[in-house]
């Protein structure tokens, strides 16, 4: 294994539950984070992102596969791994009944830093994260954005060389999200290696050097943001038709336009193209020539949804519903056969 890797995982498998209720959260996930770079793990709810982070941060043991953080095996030497990592999870893991300062000092003490270092780190982190004034207040009085910043600060107390951020901005308002992005960018500029999970393409796009797209416990695509987008086409054109019949006909009419075959979602026909505006006028001409009437038309940047639709054929948001529906079918089937 190369020493230049901050994180390396190979064929991680993790299953939860028993019997019919069994869920394969990870189904052979492999990933690499070179030192000093950012890997974005992009996927919908339930894709297995948090399970992967929990294994890499020694909170969970994998059923199969292996993983190393700065060259140390996470299963064989968890204690040594914990000396190298910082983790900020999906929910701000801070103690609401302690002040911001006490939260950071506790983490410093449990990292076995010298008392003077604990004090110095606490002060400078509170200041860097804009919490100096709130440091003496109980964390339960903090806003959502402040809690996330305190949580991130807690992950940084011991200056870990490798940082894991599990959906750091989920649930934050746009302003707090942009603030947190800036903090993360500063960290990375200072040499921290980062594994970041997110549901937002925009976030992965902005922060990650490379992106692994995860779905149903598997990595289904990997590359830089530009590589993924070029696979996809850089813009999405959506034509809304009057009804589903018209939409079916429109698919035929629009086949020659865009990078891939158009796809239909209800009455909306979607295609991707590298040059959106040019494709837009082609769409109008082609539909006009076929005598189809448009109900609406728009060009937009591709979203995570589009990445998923093109990579998996299903929408990102449907991931969980499908599983629930499949489970319900199995239960119904079980009753019939029983």
């Amino acid at each position: 294994m190369s020493a230049a890797l901050a994180v390396e995982a190979d064929g991680l498998v993790k299953t939860f539950g028993k019997g019919d209720g069994q869920v394969r959260a990870l189904d052979g996930v492999s990933l690499q984070v070179p030192m000093g770079t950012v890997l974005g793990l992009l996927g919908p709810n339930g894709a297995g992102k948090t399970t992967a982070v929990n294994i890499l941060t020694t909170l969970l043991k994998p059923d199969a596969g292996r993983a190393e953080v700065v060259g140390v095996d996470v299963v064989k030497h968890p204690a040594r791994v914990r000396n190298q990592i910082g983790l900020a999870g999906q929910f701000a893991a801070i103690d609401e009944n302690l002040t911001g300062e006490e939260n950071l000092a506790l983490v410093g003490r449990l990292n076995h830093l010298a008392r003077s270092d604990v004090r110095a780190r606490t002060r400078s982190l509170l200041s860097d994260f804009g919490l100096s004034d709130a440091g003496g207040r109980l964390a339960k009085t903090y806003s959502g954005g402040m809690r996330r910043r305190l949580d991130l600060a807690a992950a940084l107390v011991a200056r870990p060389p490798v940082l894991f951020l599990d959906e750091p901005t989920t649930g934050l308002d746009p302003r707090s999200r942009v603030d947190l992005w800036k903090v993360i960018e500063d960290l990375v500029a200072d040499g921290t290696s980062l594994l970041l999970t997110t549901q937002y393409l925009e976030e992965a796009d902005r922060l990650a050097d490379r992106i692994s797209v995860v779905d149903h416990g598997r990595v289904i695509a990997e590359g830089t943001s530009a590589e993924l987008k070029s696979k996809l086409g850089s813009t999405v054109v959506e034509a809304r038709m009057a009804d589903e019949d018209a939409a079916e006909q429109a698919i035929g009419a629009l086949k020659s336009i865009g990078d891939h075959d158009p796809a239909r979602d209800g009455v909306v026909v979607r295609l991707t193209a590298s040059d959106g505006p040019a494709a837009l006028s082609e769409v109008v001409r082609a539909l006009d020539a076929s005598g189809l009437v448009l109900a609406g038309l728009q060009v937009r940047e591709p979203s995570l949804d589009d990445v998923f639709l093109s990579l998996t054929g299903h929408r990102a948001e449907d991931g969980q519903d499908e599983e629930i529906a499949a489970g319900a079918d199995e239960r119904r089937g079980g009753r019939r056969s029983g």
Binding site: R109, L110, N111, L113, A114, S124, S127, L156, R159, D190
Partner: peptide, 26 residues
């Protein structure tokens, strides 16, 4: 942003921490 710098490692106290950590949690 010196506080965010990852390069400069902090010294950790060695030895066992069974009692010290329990007291910190208590």
């Amino acid at each position: 942003m010196t506080a965010l710098s990852a390069g400069d490692r902090l010294a950790r106290r060695g030895g066992t921490h069974v009692v010290g950590d329990a007291l910190a949690m208590a």
